[in-house]
Lab assay of single mutants.
Amino acid sequence: MATGGRRGAAAAPLLVAVAALLLGAAGHLYPGEVCPGMDIRNNLTRLHELENCSVIEGHLQILLMFKTRPEDFRDLSFPKLIMITDYLLLFRVYGLESLKDLFPNLTVIRGSRLFFNYALVIFEMVHLKELGLYNLMNITRGSVRIEKNNELCYLATIDWSRILDSVEDNYIVLNKDDNEECGDICPGTAKGKTNCPATVINGQFVERCWTHSHCQKVCPTICKSHGCTAEGLCCHSECLGNCSQPDDPTKCVACRNFYLDGRCVETCPPPYYHFQDWRCVNFSFCQDLHHKCKNSRRQGCHQYVIHNNKCIPECPSGYTMNSSNLLCTPCLGPCPKVCHLLEGEKTIDSVTSAQELRGCTVINGSLIINIRGGNNLAAELEANLGLIEEISGYLKIRRSYALVSLSFFRKLRLIRGETLEIGNYSFYALDNQNLRQLWDWSKHNLTITQGKLFFHYNPKLCLSEIHKMEEVSGTKGRQERNDIALKTNGDQASCENELLKFSYIRTSFDKI
Rank of each mutant, 00 (worst) to 15 (best):
K310R: 09
T189S: 10
M137P: 01
P269A: 06
L106R: 00
P271G: 08
T329H: 04
G142T: 00
Y304N: 04
D169T: 11
L155C: 14
E238M: 09
L114M: 07
S161P: 03
R298P: 06
D86H: 15
T85Y: 02
N295Q: 07
L88N: 01
S237P: 10
Y118H: 10
D184N: 09
P36Q: 15
V108I: 15
V121C: 12
S225K: 04
N117R: 06
T140C: 12
G232M: 05
S317Q: 15
G262I: 02
N135C: 05
D178K: 08
Q299Y: 03
A198Q: 02
D165K: 15
T211E: 15
P246I: 06
C255M: 01
R74S: 07
E151T: 02
H226P: 03
V144L: 07
N52T: 11
H236P: 03
Y154P: 14
E49S: 15
N179L: 06
D277G: 10
I139E: 01
V265A: 06
S284F: 03
K129T: 14
S296R: 03
P79W: 13
S225L: 08
E181P: 03
L63M: 09
L164Q: 05
S77L: 08
Y304L: 05
L63H: 08
C255V: 00
Y273E: 01
L240E: 03
L90N: 00
S317R: 00
C268E: 00
Q245I: 10
S244M: 15
S296F: 11
H290D: 02
K251S: 04
I82K: 06
I139V: 08
I62F: 05
D184Y: 06
N202Q: 14
K129F: 10
C186F: 10
P249E: 05
M137K: 10
T85W: 01
R41Q: 09
T250N: 08
H302S: 11
D247Y: 14
Q303W: 06
D169L: 08
L136T: 03
T107F: 05
D184H: 07
S161T: 14
Y154H: 12
C328T: 00
Y154T: 11
N138I: 12
I139S: 01
Y154I: 08
V108M: 14
P246V: 05
L99W: 01
P249T: 06
A230M: 05
P316L: 02
H59W: 05
Y304P: 02
I139M: 05
V93L: 12
Y304G: 03
V305H: 03
Q61S: 13
K67P: 08
K191G: 13
Q276T: 10
F78K: 01
G111H: 02
P270N: 03
S296M: 10
G300A: 09
Q276W: 04
K67D: 08
L152M: 15
L44G: 05
E168D: 05
R110P: 01
P220Y: 05
I201T: 05
R74K: 12
R110A: 09
C209L: 01
L136P: 00
S213L: 11
I312L: 12
R110Y: 03
L233Q: 12
N322Q: 11
C243V: 00
C186A: 10
N43P: 02
K80V: 05
D72R: 02
L44S: 09
L133Y: 02
E130T: 04
T199H: 14
V305Y: 02
N170R: 07
G318T: 06
G111N: 00
I185G: 14
T85Q: 12
S324K: 12
C280Y: 00
F283E: 08
Q303L: 08
D261H: 15
T85S: 05
P270F: 05
G142W: 00
T229W: 07
S213C: 12
D159S: 11
E168F: 08
T157K: 07
S225F: 13
D247L: 07
K310T: 08
L90I: 06
T199D: 15
L327R: 12
C286M: 01
C53G: 00
A156T: 06
V121M: 08
R145G: 03
C209P: 03
L50D: 00
N150Q: 12
